[in-house]
């Protein structure tokens, strides 16, 4: 089971994706419990706000899009955990906390459905 957190928007408009293979985690059972308990079906649309982040969270078969202020409670717990896990996996490097290229995106850190300019 994979969980993918993709953050777009922000004044920079730079998309950043974090991905975790839950089954490969030492605490896989904790992850599974957190993910199944998430209120996937209870997310309501919210009017976009200027320069706030937009989070897309995917864990098949579920997918939600959350405005930044909606990332609270268990959603925030998941997002923080995914970010921390991704960072830990990356190991020491010049920019361990920096955004990563998304493995599922042909355009690196940007939207898979984006077209190159020009």
């Amino acid at each position: 089971m994979k969980v993918v957190v993709s953050r777009s928007g922000g004044i920079a408009g730079i998309r950043t994706t974090w991905e975790v293979d839950v089954d490969a985690q030492p605490d896989a059972a904790d992850w599974a419990e957190l993910i199944t308990a998430l209120p996937w079906a209870e997310v309501s649309a919210r009017a976009p706000e200027p320069d706030r982040f937009v989070y897309r969270i995917r864990c098949a078969p579920n997918e939600v899009v959350l405005a930044e202020p909606q990332v609270c409670g268990p959603w925030k717990e998941l997002v923080d955990r995914v970010k921390a896990s991704r960072r830990a996996e990356s190991g020491p490097g010049p920019r361990p906390a920096g955004p990563r290229r998304s493995p599922d995106s042909p355009l690196g850190g940007f939207g898979a459905d984006s077209q190159p300019p020009g």
């Binding site: 993709s6 777009s8 928007g9 408009g13 998309r15 976009p48 937009v54 897309r56 899009v65 355009l107 940007f110 939207g111 459905d113 984006s114 077209q115 190159p116 300019p117 020009g118």
Partner: peptide, 16 residues
């Protein structure tokens, strides 16, 4: 990733 004309207009669901 910014386009400089309509020829490069980006269709995406991200970033509103």
């Amino acid at each position: 990733p910014q386009p400089d004309s309509m020829a490069g207009y980006v269709e995406t669901e991200d970033d509103n």
